[in-house]
């Protein structure tokens, strides 16, 4: 006779099972409506000749063929690369310098707080106001700040047309100044999480400031640096707003990036199908870059649990 008693299996009540989904549902619905559906619509649109008439016809890969035969494409890709790489490098470097300076060298000092707050201002100003400020600085008439200074100092006799001569530089400068704060906050938080004992131990061992930065701080920043690099790079590759407001891609197409080109085709010229195809290429480029950087930062290794937890 079998005396083993069967333990009743615990069944989670249906209500409890559904709890997590109730919490997820509103946000999932928002993501579906505002991200997933538009993305599907964009993909579908890119295979049509949709324009202002709103009578789309399926054209297969015609839009993509057109993108790759567009004589502007090499120049636009080059602009996108220059804008993204320079913006990312400068923004990352400054964010790193500022966070090390304020969170390590000036840690706990009021000047550090003020300095960080100052860098936050550009990112909280509405974009249109922010761009107006840069436009005023580089105004091509005597009313522009830089031109006024140069004329008063006698360096120039006529106002300089900055947006013709250094458009890409201005665009990168304005973009970098407004994006530094994002990286600065994340890196500062990461540096702040380093236990004070580590610094003390290093100093007892006679470590120089350089060694502390190179051997303690920078290795700690690998995660946030990876996150900032990937998120900002995707942001720069797909950003067009500042460029549109500052130069609208000019002079000629000197500051036209791929995403601005997509915007112009879709919304200025009303070639929605073609614009969607260009924007899909932006997405593909961003995706490839993300994979590349995950590999570069050795993402698999980073997410492996540490041995102590084995």
């Amino acid at each position: 006779m079998d005396h083993t008693t069967v333990q009743p299996i615990y069944k989670k009540p249906f209500k409890k099972k559904m709890y997590p989904y109730f919490f997820i549902m509103p946000f999932a619905a928002l993501v579906l409506v505002f991200f997933v559906l538009p993305a599907i619509a964009t993909i579908a649109m890119s295979f049509t000749d949709l324009n202002a008439s709103m009578k789309p016809k399926f054209v297969g890969l015609q839009n993509f063929t057109r993108v790759f035969s567009d004589y502007n494409l090499p120049a636009i890709l080059w602009n996108t690369a220059i804008f993204s790489i320079l913006s990312l490098s400068v923004s990352l470097l400054f964010a790193l310098i500022i966070s090390i300076a304020t969170q390590y060298f000036l840690k706990g000092k009021i000047t550090a707080v003020i300095y960080r707050v100052l860098w936050l201002i550009p990112s909280i100003i509405p974009a249109v106001v922010y761009v107006t400020f840069w436009k005023y600085i580089f105004d091509p008439t005597e009313g522009g700040l830089i031109n006024r200074i140069l004329l008063q100092l006698g360096v120039e006799s006529d106002p300089v047309s900055w947006f013709s001569k250094a458009a890409m530089g201005i665009v990168i400068l304005a973009t970098v100044v407004s994006t530094i704060s994002g990286g600065m906050i994340l890196l500062s938080a990461a540096i702040n999480s380093i236990p004070e004992d580590l610094y003390k131990a290093a100093r007892v061992d006679g470590a120089s400031e350089k060694s502390v930065i190179m051997k303690i701080i920078l290795p700690t920043l690998k995660w946030p640096l990876m996150y900032i690099t990937i998120s900002e790079l995707i942001g720069f590759v797909s950003s067009y707003f500042f460029i549109m407001l500052l130069t609208n891609g000019g002079p000629m197409r000197d500051t036209t990036t791929l995403s601005l080109y997509a915007y112009q085709q879709a919304f200025n010229l009303k070639y929605y199908g073609y614009g969607a195809a260009v924007s899909l290429i932006v997405v593909i480029i961003s995706f490839i870059l993300t994979l590349l950087f995950l590999r570069l930062f050795d993402f698999d290794q980073m997410i492996k649990p540490s041995r102590i937890e084995d």
Binding site: N51, R253, L269
Partner: peptide
């Protein structure tokens, strides 16, 4: 004409080439 804006953009590109290049 519905493509007037596209045409003008091309025309202004030529003007820009003279002015800035």
């Amino acid at each position: 004409q519905p493509d007037y804006a596209t045409y003008t953009k091309s025309y202004i590109l030529g003007v820009d080439a003279i002015l800035t290049k």
